[in-house]
Every structure is written in C-alpha cells, then in structure tokens.
Design a protein around this nucleic acid. Structure first.
Lengths: 134, 134
DNA sequence: ACCTAGTTGACAACGGTTTTCATTTTCGAC
DNA sequence: GTCGAAAATGAAAACCGTTGTCAACTAGGT
C-alpha cells in the first residue's frame, strides 16, 4: 500500500526532529534543517511532517494562535503535554483519571466517536527567569 | 477607558450569537447575520467577536484545523466544552479535579503562568444517526 | 444641531499551509 | 549495473482565515 522511500530529505527532517525535545512549527524545523547544512524545500518539510503525524511518529499540538507544532514522540502511548509558551520545551504527562472523566462525560451526553485535546501551557523555569516582571 | 457604543452591527452580531448554542466560525456567523436580514461587514464581525472574546462574553475554541470558533457563554465561570464535530452543538462541562491536576503537574515541573486547553470532541446523537457507518 | 472619538466596511495585505506540475530520485526487476 | 515505473521533490502559485488600512460614517454627550 503505502510505499515509503528513504530520501535524504526525510532523513534530514527526522534528524532535526530527533535533535530537539521541543515543539516546533514546520517553518522552524525547515530553518533547523537548513542550519544543519541540508537543503530541503519547505513543501517537503510540510509533507514529511504530515506523514509522520499520520503514522503517529510525531505529536502535534495546535498553538493558541492556530499554528501546528510538531515534536517527536517519546512515550508511544496516549499522553498530553506541558509546553513552554516561549521556548517550546515540553514535558509529557499522563492523566488516566482525566481520560476516564472525558469519556464518561461524553457518553453521558450521548456523544460518540469521542476524542479530546488537553494541553497545558506555561513558562518553564528557564524562560521564567529570563523575563522577570518589572 | 473602554467606551463601547451600541451600533446596529454589534446588536446584529450578538443577536446571531444568542440565536444558537453552537460553536461557529466568524464566517459562519457573518453568513448567519446576513441571512437574518442584516448587512454587516466581515471585518466588523471579526472585530466584534474579538472584543466579546476579550471581555469574556463569548467562549472561543480552536478547531482541530486551526480556525477559531465562537459561542456565547452560558456558564460564566471556568469550564470546558463537549463539542459536536459535525454541527457544533455544545455542552458545557466542568471538571474541578482536572483543573487541580493540571496545575499540580505544571508546578511540579517548575512551570509558571500556567493555563490549559481542554476540549472534548465527538459526534452528538443527532449527527451520529445521520451518518450511519457502512 | 454640533462635535468628536469611536465605528464601519471595501479592499489590500499577511502568513501559514496546500496544490500544482515539471523535474528528479529511489529501488526493485532484469 | 542499468532501466523504468512509481514515488518524491521543490519553486511558485493558489488558498483561506484573519488582520491592517484608511476614508467615510455615526452614536451620543453637550
């Protein structure tokens, strides 16, 4: 069915993903690949990330301003993210009781085919010390 | 400070918001206003919705494809939403234990200035019966 | 009625993402 | 190794939701 080929471009993109533990936009990753010395078209970056997201190899988060952020998946099972608003540094978190609560609420209201999005945004300690309030 | 005036445009937009309990995009609301017989510019719809969102009079949700959906707020306190993927029909839900869990996880990891997004998406019973699987 | 700061809307601009399509590349078959 | 079909690439254009521009308009106090 799906025939995937090993191209230098895909290798470069996955390498860039593996080089960081932060959520990054497609454009940031495109820049990261360029800085790593490889030339990959922006279109290809988008396509590669889309494919990886479909296959579940990267996690995606929609930032509060609507753009998609990507990050390589460490924990393969279902989990959520604690993301730094400034630098993207991320901690994977799990909340089994939250999952159960969400499903229970949905079925109690007659909703089927249920999914949920749960992300926690904040400022990590490193970024918090940088921008000290007045 | 903020001096708000009562214009027919704002009245028309808030009326359209009050006429439904569903999450709708700015463009859908713009159409709804037009169908209601009023002529309001799309720019004004966006501005009005933005203002209402800032003042907390409407809830906003970012759909999975990145666009902003608006809905008039029934419950003024902090809550989350169970949204139908197809028609936007929405139930407001509360999960105090989830709030506490999110804050605890964030502070345990040294994150400050914490917020979170939690939305449940599914298919409401009405829409579920419409598109019966094969 | 008048004044003025707030408001409107047609249109252009913006920015992230997707599509197009001609060219290039991978990789199994020979 | 090399051939060739299918997959992949990338530059540019299209897309689409959203925001900015700015001249004309209006609500509401005096």
């Amino acid at each position: 069915m799906t025939e995937l080929r090993n191209t230098k471009q895909r290798i470069a993109v996955t390498a860039a993903l593996s080089a960081t533990d932060r959520f990054q936009s497609a454009q940031e990753l495109h820049l990261a690949v360029a800085l790593a010395g490889h030339s990959v078209g922006l279109t290809t970056v988008y396509r590669t990330l889309g494919a990886l997201a479909d296959s579940g190899d990267v996690d995606t988060v929609i930032s509060t301003d609507g753009q998609v952020l990507y990050r390589r998946c460490i924990e393969p099972s279902h989990h959520h993210h604690l993301v730094c608003r400034d630098c993207g540094r991320t901690v994977e978190v799990e909340g089994p009781q939250v999952e159960k609560w969400a499903d229970a609420v949905a079925t109690a209201n007659g909703y089927v085919d249920v999914s949920h999005t749960l992300e926690i945004f904040g400022r990590c300690s490193a970024c918090a010390t940088l921008r000290t309030p007045s």
